[in-house]
């Protein structure tokens, strides 16, 4: 079942159209990647889901029902532009935010202590915010986001400012939250983390959805017709249906080659073709694109069409 449905959302600002008929379905207990280059409209969509701004038309459904203002308690949002009150103590700030989310004092304290443990920080309750390093304040911001145990966690560029160690720590926690049944949307224009975290994704460019679905489906849909092969004996150039892009000797009579199909044939047919040409296959792998390649390809495709 879907936790969140975005249906035909349109939004225009004073000078431009930010979202044009965007529809996205986000399954419960999954990590959803909202991708797109800068200025694509990701943040606008997230702000609409958080009811910070209103859509011009279209609907947002949470648990299948029209979202209303009380639902923001079920959402934890970490904006891209995030900061803290410099002149406050961490504890006071967490209590303040907890109160705004409807938590009692003790609920806030318990939840915060819990998260201090999860994120491997000592008790920061009485620390001044202005004394925090960038990485430390990022952790505090993450705690703020999940303090009230929201069903839906929305993270806008969560890993900017984190070092690799802390990035892994946050990733670990995100996966754990997913296993606990939480749904996570994370918006980014950096693809490295998408591959390893996301189950589903939608790609927005120039205020339109240009791609959406399960990450595995998308990857297989964008499987290229390039194969990486490790084999004995040289491949003869004259075999039809494919061309050799690259071939080098690794050791003795062992070759590593990249071949590209020139005619649409299945991988089984390709394998048979090679075997029948007395090439002994040691490794056979279809080259799948990573999300970064797909992203760049789709965005460039879109730009060329305009």
């Amino acid at each position: 079942m879907d936790l969140l449905n975005v249906k035909n959302i349109c939004k225009s600002y004073v000078n431009h159209r930010a979202l044009d008929n965007i529809s996205i379905d986000i399954p419960r207990s999954s990590i959803f990647g909202l991708l797109g280059p800068n200025g694509a409209g990701k943040t606008t969509l997230i702000r609409i889901i958080n009811q910070i701004i209103n859509q011009d038309s279209g609907k947002i459904l949470l648990h299948g029902k029209n979202i209303n203002y009380d639902d923001i308690r079920k959402i934890g949002y970490m904006p891209e532009e995030r900061g803290l009150y410099k002149k406050m103590k961490i504890g006071d700030f967490l209590l303040f935010m907890g109160k705004l989310k409807g938590l009692s004092r003790s609920e806030s304290i318990n939840s915060a202590k819990n998260w201090f443990n999860n994120l491997e920080v000592s008790n920061w309750w009485n620390k001044n915010i202005e004394d925090l390093s960038k990485g430390m304040s990022q952790k505090v911001q993450f705690i703020l986001t999940v303090l009230h145990n929201p069903d839906l966690i929305i993270l806008d560029e969560p890993f900017s400012g984190f070092d690799p160690v802390n990035t892994n720590l946050i990733k670990k926690n995100l996966l754990r939250l997913k296993d606990e049944g939480k749904t996570i949307i994370f918006s980014t224009h950096r693809m490295e983390s998408v591959d390893e975290l996301c189950d589903n994704l939608a790609m927005i460019n120039k205020s339109k959805t240009i791609l959406s679905g399960k990450i595995n489906d998308i990857k297989s849909a964008y499987k290229s017709d390039i194969y990486k092969i490790k084999h004995l004996n040289r491949i003869d150039d004259k075999i039809s249906n494919f061309s050799v892009i690259d071939s080098k000797i690794v050791f003795d009579n062992i070759y590593e080659s990249e071949i590209k199909l020139t005619k649409k044939i299945s991988s089984n047919d390709l394998l048979r073709l090679l075997l029948s040409n007395s090439i002994e296959i040691l490794e056979f792998k279809q080259k799948t694109p990573n999300m970064n390649d797909i992203f760049i390809m789709k965005v460039e495709e879109g730009n060329n069409n305009v």
Partner: peptide, 17 residues
């Protein structure tokens, strides 16, 4: 200050402007 320290968007995800 709220605007320049960027705390404002964190806050208004919980309260109306």
């Amino acid at each position: 200050d709220e605007k320049s320290s960027k705390v404002v968007e964190v806050i208004i995800s919980s309260v109306k402007p």
